[in-house]
């Protein structure tokens, strides 16, 4: 796990910050230094909607090394209320009870813990409500 990388991405991962173009209104996540649509550098930070719905989901029973601690878990494709889509885990819910279209809210959780260094990577996950 690379501390500088975690630090660099902290506003996106911890606060859900993307950016919005002041010229064409295009919203994007993750952040970029210029608008993906019109290439303008006239952009400002934009906070993602805290709620959204599940577009698609499945269960992960064979995760990568750093996520084995949480296995099995649910992963989903989430459409936030502002139209931006992200991938994230669906937590505090049984897999069999999760349905497409279910409303979810963003929550702040541990994503993974480095086994050797003990470093913790935090980020957003989603809870159905």
């Amino acid at each position: 796990m690379e501390p500088p990388k975690i630090w660099r991405e902290r506003r996106e991962r911890y606060l859900g910050i993307g950016n919005k173009c002041l010229d064409c209104n295009e919203k994007s996540f993750p952040r970029t230094d210029y608008c993906l649509k019109c290439s303008s550098k006239n952009i400002e930070e934009y906070k993602l909607s805290k709620t959204g719905k599940i577009l698609q989901f499945t269960q992960v029973t064979q995760p990568a090394q750093e996520h084995i601690f949480y296995s099995p878990f649910i992963i989903g494709l989430i459409e936030l209320d502002d139209g931006i889509q992200v991938t994230g885990q669906i937590v505090d819910y049984n897999y069999d009870d999760v349905k497409e279209g279910m409303k979810v809210r963003m929550t702040f959780r541990i994503l993974s813990i480095d086994n050797e260094e003990g470093l913790i990577k935090y980020g957003y996950k989603f809870v159905p409500y």
């Binding site: 499945t58 269960q59 992960v60 064979q62 995760p63 990568a64 090394q65 994503l111 990577k121």
Partner: peptide, 25 residues
């Protein structure tokens, strides 16, 4: 979990893999 990590480089490593997604999922 090692191959899953290697395959993580074939999907969006930061915003899919690090969030818990695998190629299979």
């Amino acid at each position: 979990g090692v191959i899953e990590r290697i395959l993580g480089s074939t999907i969006d490593y930061q915003w899919e893999y690090e969030m818990g997604a695998t190629l299979t999922s």
